[in-house]
Computed example of a mutant assay.
Amino acid sequence: MSSYAIVVRAFDGEAPYLQSFIDYHRRLGVEAFYPVLAPGAAPLCRDIFAKNQIRFHESEGQRIGSVQDLIREDYVAVIDADEYLHPDLFRFLDEESVESLLMPWRLTASLDDDFFESAQKKFFVFPQVKSIVQTSALKRLRLHASNTSGSGRCLGIAQGQQFPVQHYYLRGLDDLLLKEGGVVRRTLAQSSGRKQVNLNADADADSLDFPSRHARVAFLLNVLETRPEQLDPYSMTLDRSMLDYLRNSVHGDPDAAKQALRDSVARIQRVYRKRTIHREIRATQQLLASDPHKVSYQKRVLKLLRRDFEFRQSWLGLFENARDSLLMNRGRL
């Protein structure tokens, strides 16, 4: 039987969900965790790791390469605390001689704060990848696809689709609040997705300003509206006392902040055209069938958003907007 390790970056916004992440992967068979924290940051996560007898490691910028030489297990994966390895993955690796395996994201998200623990969810598989690699062949540990230098079998997304990484992309508005509300000291992990985006068609048009994470969430929510609900095979738990503690750390009114976040995401959702969403679902399915190495989720989402924003500023787009508004008022859309 092989041994397995996980490298994970963590920050205190993940604290209400972190114990669930640890418990699940221990049940799966993970023998060692290598958390990478920013120096002096994430005191809540430090307490959780200490309670679970997991040693954490400090690195400026949370560089995961800082723990590469410490790993002694047979296989290692780099995942975030909102990502979960497939329950059949380790059995497959035990039975097969594999040097590396690329696994696509199986995304799910909601603005509903009760969503994380709910049994039913909607899912969308996208060819942004995570990898699990044989430590003896590891050349460079990376966030998505680690490099190896051996001569073994390196399996791509075609095989990895059997073992997608379940990515709880947004676990509710509380989750977004902890990521955006200045609750904890900013680290590399916390600031990811906060790149400011500004959409302007011309000087007289309305602008749309938002963190890039909002666009990624808005796109996914629109896609998930078209997906059927399925049973979530992963049993999730949320530390609500920890969540309440962090909510109380938010400057100002948390509920007002959450409503502002909801409005921001909803405004972006309205920019995406329905035909764009349906076309992108088909294009993603074709991409997965072609066994790509990796596709950048953020770049793709922002490209589609800019294209739809420009269209909606055109005369044809203004006509379409007026038609959609009329149909919506009549209750037909």
Rank of each mutant, 00 (worst) to 15 (best):
S59F: 04
F116I: 09
T108V: 08
E96G: 11
Q53V: 13
S149A: 15
Y84S: 11
K51E: 14
Y84L: 13
P104E: 02
R106P: 09
F163C: 04
Q128K: 15
V76L: 05
R142I: 13
Q120N: 12
A77D: 00
S59G: 07
Y75H: 08
N52T: 01
S131I: 00
F124H: 10
F163Q: 06
F126K: 05
S136F: 11
S59R: 03
K121W: 06
F126L: 11
M103T: 14
E99A: 09
V78R: 05
Q120M: 13
L155P: 00
D113R: 06
L138Y: 00
E58N: 11
Y84M: 12
F124N: 07
L138H: 00
F124K: 07
D47S: 14
T135R: 14
A77L: 05
H167C: 02
S146P: 08
H167V: 00
I79Q: 02
Q128G: 15
F116W: 10
R55S: 14
L138V: 02
S136W: 12
I71G: 03
E95I: 08
F126T: 09
A145Y: 07
L93P: 06
A137I: 07
G65K: 02
R46N: 06
R63G: 11
E60A: 14
K51H: 14
T135Q: 11
F49M: 01
Q162R: 12
Y168W: 05
S97W: 11
L89R: 06
H167Y: 05
H167I: 01
S151P: 09
F115R: 01
D69A: 08
Q62D: 07
Q159V: 15
E58L: 10
Q128S: 15
L89K: 07
V165F: 08
L111K: 08
